[in-house]
C-alpha cells in the first residue's frame, strides 16, 4: 500500500530554523509537502485557506505580529482538529502548560532534529 502523503505547516519566524526543520522533516519521512508561515497570523490564514487539511502543524512560540499561543487558540477556534505541536526553546512546565491550554497537542524543544520529528510523526501516526 502506498504511503500517505504528509502535509505539514511549519510556523516559524526564523529562516535558519525553517531550513533546519525542513531538512529534519524530510529525513524523518514527513516532509512530502511543507508549507511555511513566518508568524501566527499567516499560519491562521494558511490553515483557513488550505485546499486540504494539514496533517500536522509545527508551531513556534515567540513570533512577530501574532505569537504561537494566539495562533493555536485561533486555529482551534475555527474547529480545526489537526495535531498542533508546539516548538520552543523555552521548555519550562509553565511554557508547556500555556501551549497545551491554548490547544496544542504536544510540545517539543528546539532545536528540532530528525529523531524528535520521528517521534512526533509516529505519535500522530504520520510515519
Amino acid at each position: 500500500m502506498a504511503r500517505k502523503m504528509i502535509r505539514v505547516l511549519l510556523v516559524e519566524d526564523e529562516e535558519i530554523n525553517r531550513v533546519v526543520a525542513r531538512a529534519a522533516l524530510k529525513a524523518a519521512g514527513g516532509g512530502d509537502v511543507v508549507d511555511e508561515a513566518e508568524n501566527g497570523e499567516v499560519a491562521v490564514q494558511r490553515v483557513r485557506d488550505a485546499a486540504a487539511p494539514y496533517d500536522l502543524v509545527l508551531m513556534d512560540k515567540q513570533m512577530p505580529v501574532m505569537d504561537g499561543h494566539e495562533a493555536t487558540r485561533r486555529i482551534r477556534g475555527m474547529g480545526v482538529t489537526t495535531p498542533i505541536v508546539a516548538v520552543s526553546s523555552d521548555g519550562l512546565p509553565a511554557d508547556v502548560d500555556a501551549f497545551i491550554t491554548a490547544g496544542a497537542d504536544d510540545f517539543t524543544s528546539k532545536p528540532l532534529s530528525k529523531e524528535k520529528l520521528g517521534v512526533i510523526l509516529a505519535k500522530f501516526r504520520l510515519a
Partner: peptide, 23 residues
C-alpha cells in the same frame, strides 16, 4: 553533527553551508 548527518543522508551537499551562512 545533526546538520552534517542531514546533509549526508539527504544528499544535499550545500545544506551545512546554507545553514551556517544564514547564522
Amino acid at each position: 553533527q545533526q546538520l552534517q548527518m542531514l546533509q549526508d543522508e539527504g544528499g544535499t551537499p550545500g545544506f551545512v553551508s546554507e545553514v551556517v551562512t544564514l547564522f
